[in-house]
Simulated assay, not measured.
Amino acid sequence: MGELFTGEYPARTAVCESDTRSRSGMTDADERLSRAVVFRVQKFSTANGPGIRTVIFLKGCPLSCRWCPYPEGISYRPELLYYPDRCIGCHDCVEICPNAALSPVEDHIAIHRHFCQACGTCVLSCPSGALEIAGHPYSLDALLEIITQDRTFYQYSGGGVTFAGGEAASHSGFLRRLAGACKELAIHTALETCLIHEWSTYQVLMPHIDLWIVNLRIMETRLHKIGTGYGVWAVLENVRMLASSRANIWIRTPIIPGWTDSESNIRAMAEFLRDYAGVIHRWELNAFSDNRRLYPTLGQVYVSESLPAVHPDRLNALADLARRVCGGQIPVVTSGPTLVG
């Protein structure tokens, strides 16, 4: 799909990824290299790298973080979102759905997600905006046109483009081509990543990424696996590999009460990171804000317990601890609350 970004994500456009591929005659391999599913485009961001940036959120993540602030970014495919509070009970969507994926329930609807193809037909029929599609296939050229619209702002602010997710590196073939095209245009590139894939996934991206923003959450592998579905060793090994390759690295740690906010976790993280102070130029402790309200729109349950907001004094105390353990070798900053997971 090639709609230009106009200030709001084009959620009311009916496009089915499988239909697009079948009409074009593409193979799955061709599809992965020529387009990717994007669930958000954020312009004029100042929270995802230096300067003013355009952030491209690519859909799909191998992790299953219990606190994930972007549940619409976990699946690799487009998904239907339903906001019951907007629904007026007209049931136009039920009648028009080509896959019998919707049924009336009094003045609302039920979604049978195993039938839903996220084709968007129901979205176009909804008069109240109760239905949206999360994720649309974008071609490389369409994204490049969106990114280059703000080159003047990048140049004057030291900004550029940031690829986020989901886990943007899951689309490494497509991302390599897109980031490479940005580099040819002298646009600064950043990648926000959890570094959970094997090293070769990131190695092929290195010539095309100027800044690596690494989400590092939990140092204790058992707790990391409970919280994310994976152990932490692959992440730490990939940090070592990035550092040995002299990559430009920022570390971002969301401070999540009960998960990442212990002094022992921050101390262990600082002891690990200080060995790579020469290439880690910023460590950000972010006051986490959950996004539980979005889970029901996807037919999902927010599995984590209630997460209170971290107190500013606690956030500052953890930052002071990080600075002491790092011996002042890595700049430690605080931020938030923003949706960083």
Score class of each variant (00 low, 15 high):
G2I: 05
D19P: 08
S24H: 13
T27E: 07
A29E: 15
E31R: 14
F39R: 01
S45Q: 05
P50L: 07
I52D: 02
I56R: 03
L58I: 00
G60I: 04
G60P: 08
G60A: 02
L63C: 03
S64P: 06
C65D: 01
P71M: 01
P71V: 03
E72Q: 11
G73S: 08
S75T: 05
Y76V: 10
Y82K: 05
P84R: 12
C90F: 04
D92A: 15
A101I: 05
E106M: 13
D107A: 12
I111S: 07
I111T: 01
A118S: 10
C126E: 03
I133V: 10
G135L: 02
D141H: 07
L143V: 02
L144K: 01
Q149K: 15
Q149G: 06
R151L: 08
Y154Q: 02
A164L: 00
G173I: 00
G173L: 00
L175C: 05
R177W: 04
L178I: 07
A179L: 05
K183E: 00
E184A: 11
L185V: 11
H188Y: 10
A190I: 03
L191K: 02
S200K: 09
R217M: 12
I218A: 08
M219V: 02
W233G: 14
L236S: 07
E237P: 09
V239P: 01
M241V: 05
S244T: 12
I251C: 04
I256D: 02
G258H: 04
A270H: 05
E271G: 11
D275T: 13
G278N: 09
G278T: 11
E284N: 11
Y295V: 00
G299T: 06
Y302G: 04
V303M: 13
P308T: 03
P312T: 05
P312M: 11
R314G: 06
R314V: 04
N316L: 14
D320Y: 09
R324D: 15
G328N: 09
P331N: 08
